[in-house]
């Protein structure tokens, strides 16, 4: 084997450069937790910045990158969670979820939702987060924008079975919270929903007008028919 070339020394120069560089250049440095989307001033400056004090992380929704997704949550609009819940228990997500980790029980009677329309609601809505694989399929298939991804990740619990089965009331989060954790995504979603709603209303109006027009036409036609009848008489 040949040792006499310069390859080994070249390699050693690289490691030396990295050794020195790790003290001076931030680019080289591996931070155990990437905060690249944060402004410079918020980057962890010293050891001890991470992990945060116990418990702090739970409430600090900005600990993770706001693009990331973890487990689903149910959305409700401003107001009492159960009064403004968007989910109508249509059970599409339950059917589509690849690992089958959503369990829904539909309510027997209807209740008014945020728009004041009577709707069914989930009497039970459990997600087994020990099975959930954070794939976001449920979010995509939901026709009512009722379920979105949360980014909370501190979910460890001493109770292996019950503790990881998240119930409806724990899943329910307000739209404001959603805006806080996924600002860009939430804004687009709201925009689209508003557009959908407007389109629907416009359609409804158009339909109503059309119906009215049709009724008028019908009436006119009937009158004309009557007249012609009279004429023939």
């Amino acid at each position: 084997m040949s040792i006499l070339g310069g390859g080994i020394f070249k390699g050693m120069a690289v490691t030396l450069r990295n050794f020195v560089g790790s003290y001076f250049s931030k680019e080289r440095f591996i931070t155990t937790n990437e905060y690249s989307w944060r402004p410079e001033s918020e980057l962890p400056q010293s050891i001890g910045d991470y992990p945060k004090e116990e418990g702090e992380q739970l409430s600090d929704t900005t600990t993770v990158n706001h693009y990331s997704r973890n487990f689903p949550m149910l959305l409700h609009d401003t107001g009492e969670p159960m009064d403004t819940i968007r989910c109508v228990a249509c059970q599409i997500c339950e059917r589509e979820c690849p690992p089958q980790c959503i369990y829904i029980e539909k309510s027997t009677e209807k209740k008014e939702n945020a728009d004041g329309k009577p709707q069914f609601y989930p009497a039970k809505f459990d997600i087994d987060v020990s099975v959930c694989m954070s794939c976001q399929i449920c979010v995509e298939v939901c026709p009512f924008d009722a379920i979105v991804m949360n980014s909370q990740f501190e979910l460890s619990t001493p109770d292996r079975f019950g503790g990881l089965l998240v119930r409806r009331d724990d899943l329910l989060k307000s739209n404001d919270y959603y805006h806080k954790i996924h600002p860009q995504e939430a804004a687009t979603r709201d925009e689209r929903m508003a557009a959908d709603k407007a389109a629907k209303e416009a359609k409804k109006k158009a339909a109503a007008e059309k119906a009215k027009a049709a009724a008028e036409a019908k009436a006119a036609a009937a009158e004309a028919a009557n007249e012609s009848k009279e004429d023939t008489e």
């Binding site: 084997m1 006499l4 390859g7 070249k10 390699g11």
Partner: peptide, 9 residues
């Protein structure tokens, strides 16, 4: 530079 000319590799 680190790997491709290293005689051992």
């Amino acid at each position: 530079q680190l790997l491709c000319e290293n005689e051992i590799i």
